[in-house]
Structures are given as C-alpha cells and as structure tokens.
C-alpha cells in the first residue's frame, strides 16, 4: 500500500478551553476521500491544520510527508476551496481567479490561460467577466472551485463544496469530483451531508466531537460493526405470511412489517441474506426483492454516534 498523502498522529487542536480535535490519528490515501461529520465536529479544523493555516496544539499532521505550515513546497501542491462564501467582491470572477493565480506564482500569460480554462471547466466561461456581486450562490461556489483547480494541484481540499448549489449544480460538482479522482487527483471532500459524499466516494473519515470515529471504506466500516444489528428489507406480496414463515426459519432479532415491505433485523447479515435467498428461491416465492437498507453512510454514522 502506498504511503498516505495526509497523515496525522496524536493530532489535537484547542482554542482556549474548547477542544476542536482531540488526539486523532488519520491516514488518508490517494484518491477521493470524504471527511464526514456534523457541524462543529472538527472537519474544517482538520482541513486548516492540513493546509497549514493552523498549528497543531499537540501531535502533527503531514501532507506528502511534510509539515504544511509556512511550507511553500507543500502549498504548491494544494488547492483549497474554503467553506466561507467570501470573495474580493469588487472583482469579476475571472479577475479573482487570475490574481490568485498570480499569487500562486504564475507569470501573467500562464495566469490568464489557467484562469480562463479553470472558469471554463467549472462552467463559468460565459459569466466570468461579470462582477462577483452579480453571481448566484452556485456561481460563487464554482468560482471558488475554479481558483482551487487553476494551479493544477495534486491535492484538493473542498470544504462543503455543495453548499448553496441547486440539484443540477450538485450533480455537476459530483461529476467533476469523480472526474478529478479518475484523473489521479487526490480530493478531500468535507461535508456534513452524508448522502453528498456517497455520491463521490466510499472512502471516508468520520469525525464527531473532535475525535475520529472511523476511517476506511464504508463497507469495511460497516463490517466492523458486527455488534450492531443490520436491517434487511424484503418487498413483495403476502408479507404477513412471509413474516410468519421467516420468524421460524431465519436468524432474526426483530421483524417489522411496513407498507409493502418487511424489515428484518439480524446480527448475522451475510448468513441471513443467504438463508433468505434460498427461501425466496423456493417455488411460489416469486416477486420479492431483498435489500440491505443500512449499508449507507447515514446508517453507519448513526450507529457510530449512537443516535
């Protein structure tokens, strides 16, 4: 396995008596990774530590093997789309990206070309010469993304990138993030909306109250949680009869009859799934569908924070 692009050990950050991150260990591999947690969990603090905007109170965070704070070599490889909706409002979108390109160290010609292509890539070509004050929230979000993408970074931090976007805009950003991942770029997507992250990756780090609850692939995390019962949903006809038959034959903890479906709770999902498949394969048991309803991130997250 290749070395992680971001590695944190015993990382803590506190402001006065407020602990934002508490002794966390994180290893983020190459690719697209979701940084998940509710508001105030410590996601943005972690990102700012990884960007070198903050110094750790204890422990360390390394990006590409080096401490990022005041480290120009690390910053050269990083693109950052912040959560805050703030700009130099007297500029146009193009000017905003152009001048940040110049701050990156690009010469005029490169700065112009990359600003134009970045605006174009995020779908802002037609409006890039308009003042930022005239932009919608979605357009502002795209310009933020454009300035992060423009220097062609190796590692991109997107802090709540879907905030304020309409469904179509979200789909486009999802597509872009997936595309960037396919191109080999490492992307850290922070979000408190789990569904959003599921759209772009199954590699996640779950943060809650300043501690890391879990990290890895969603399915792997879910498998670790053997102590928690999982739910299998069967939809189809004659559910009451079906339920009666299942209770005696399948390893179930509980069973709940719903509208057009029955939910089975079990501690042995693989075996139960197998048993159900065999049972449904019998003659007369047609028209049923099986689905594991709590493999998604929300369920994992709910389990982990014991809500």
């Amino acid at each position: 396995m290749s070395s992680p692009i971001i590695e944190a050990k015993n990382l803590s950050k506190w402001y006065g008596e407020v602990v934002a991150l508490n002794n966390i260990d994180i290893a983020i591999p190459q690719g697209v990774t979701g940084l998940l947690g509710p508001n105030g969990a410590g996601k943005s603090t972690f990102i700012k530590l990884a960007l070198g905007l903050f110094s750790p109170s204890r422990g360390y965070v390394h990006v590409h093997g080096a401490a990022p704070r005041n480290n120009r070599k690390v910053l050269q490889q990083i693109g950052y789309c912040p959560e805050v909706d703030q700009f130099h409002e007297t500029m146009t979108g193009y000017e905003f990206v152009y001048w940040l390109n110049r701050q990156w160290g690009m010469r005029k010609k490169d700065a112009i070309e990359t600003a134009e292509s970045a605006c174009e890539r995020v779908g802002m070509k037609d409006r890039m010469h308009d003042l930022i004050t005239t932009y919608s929230k979605g357009m502002r979000q795209r310009i933020k993304l454009a300035q992060a993408l423009a220097p062609a970074p190796l590692l991109l931090f997107l802090d709540e990138p879907m905030a304020g976007l309409d469904p179509r805009g979200r789909e486009e950003i999802f597509g872009l993030i997936r595309q960037l991942g396919d191109e080999g770029l490492s992307v850290i997507v922070s979000s408190h909306i789990l569904h959003e992250v599921e759209q772009v990756t199954d590699q996640v780090v779950l943060i809650y109250n300043g501690i890391v609850l879990a990290q890895g692939r969603v399915s792997e995390i879910r498998d670790v949680l053997d102590t928690h019962p999982r739910t299998i949903r069967i939809a189809g006809p004659n559910l009451r009869t079906l339920a009666q038959e299942i209770v005696g034959n399948v390893d179930v903890l509980g069973l709940e009859l719903g509208d057009g479906h029955v939910d089975i709770r079990t501690r042995t999902p693989n075996e139960t799934f197998e048993q159900l498949n065999q049972w449904l394969a019998k003659p007369g048991h047609t028209g049923y569908t099986l689905q594991c309803t709590d493999d998604d991130l929300q369920s994992v997250f709910d389990y982990l924070v014991r809500r």
Binding site: N101, W104, M106, A152
Partner: peptide, 20 residues
C-alpha cells in the same frame, strides 16, 4: 461542467512554472 475545453487545462503533474 464543460468537458471540452478550448484552453489546455493543466493536468496532474503539469503545473505552471512559478516565477521568482
């Protein structure tokens, strides 16, 4: 998002040259 760019977009490892 635009898939076909008229400008060459810098790709991975193809960062613009930094000035002094």
């Amino acid at each position: 998002m635009n898939e076909s760019n008229t400008h060459q977009f810098h790709t991975l490892g193809d960062q613009p040259v930094q000035g002094g």
